[in-house]
């Protein structure tokens, strides 16, 4: 009994850290993704190729390598970040790179007529992108974005590798203390499954809520 009450309370602390990681990284990643995606379409040669390179780089690097680069590598050029900050930065960069793909695709899929109509009523390019294109594009990209957030919840477990005390790290510590691997890791798997299901449900609700009535996709 002692084991369970201890494990559960430590796991709760770990859950709070995991939630903190995701709750901060997810919005940052989404904003970065939208900015990168829009830059890739409208950014011209310089900003556009910068955004393309940036997103290719962080899609090509495994997240765990990015994490080690930020946490162990950056101090060599004088940038010291604590573990949680390093994790948040890496998660945001990685998911931003992936989300930019969805956003770019969504922007490209918006009917040309929308852009022409915006021009016809005298909108500037910035107004057109902000008020006409992006509100539609983000709705189309949101399914992909929700997938990325689900991945982010799962991959947030990698933060254990730089010493962040999130759920997986707690489980691993208990695994080395007690001979109860099956209980420890199956409970953890169940928690992640529930989190994944809840997040998927949340985004399904959000997608339904944001839907434009009677608009054919």
């Amino acid at each position: 009994m002692e084991f369970w009450s201890e494990y559960l309370s430590s796991l709760l602390m770990g859950f709070l850290t995991t939630s903190e990681l995701v709750a901060i990284s997810a919005p940052l990643g989404i904003i970065l993704g939208i900015a990168l995606g829009a830059s890739r379409v409208y950014g011209g040669i310089i900003l556009g190729s910068f955004a393309r390179g940036f997103s290719a780089l962080f899609r090509g690097f495994p997240l765990i390598v990015t994490l080690f680069l930020v946490f162990f590598g950056l101090p060599e050029i004088g940038i010291y970040l604590p573990p949680v900050t390093s994790a948040i930065l890496s998660f945001s960069l990685c998911s931003g790179a992936y989300i930019s793909e969805y956003v770019r695709g969504a922007i490209m899929s918006i009917d040309q007529g929308q852009s022409l109509a915006a021009k016809a009523i005298g909108m500037t390019k910035l107004q057109e992108v902000l008020y006409i294109i992006l509100p539609q594009a983000i709705r189309r990209a949101i399914y992909g974005i929700s997938n990325e957030i689900v991945y982010m919840i799962q991959y947030s477990s990698l933060a254990f590798a730089i010493g962040v005390q999130e759920m997986y790290s707690v489980a691993r510590t208990y695994n080395s203390l007690y001979f109860k691997s099956l209980e420890i890791f199956s409970l953890l798997a169940v928690i992640y499954l529930v989190l994944t299901a809840l997040t998927t449900l949340f985004f399904k609700g959000l997608i339904r809520k944001l839907e434009i009535p009677s608009k054919a996709e």
């Binding site: 990698l158 997986y168 489980a171 695994n175 691997s181 420890i184 890791f185 499954l193 994944t196």
Partner: peptide
């Protein structure tokens, strides 16, 4: 699909 790879690896390796 819903369980992190790290958890799967640990679950199968240790349990």
């Amino acid at each position: 699909r819903g369980t992190p790879l790290l958890v799967l690896l640990s679950l199968f390796y240790w349990a």
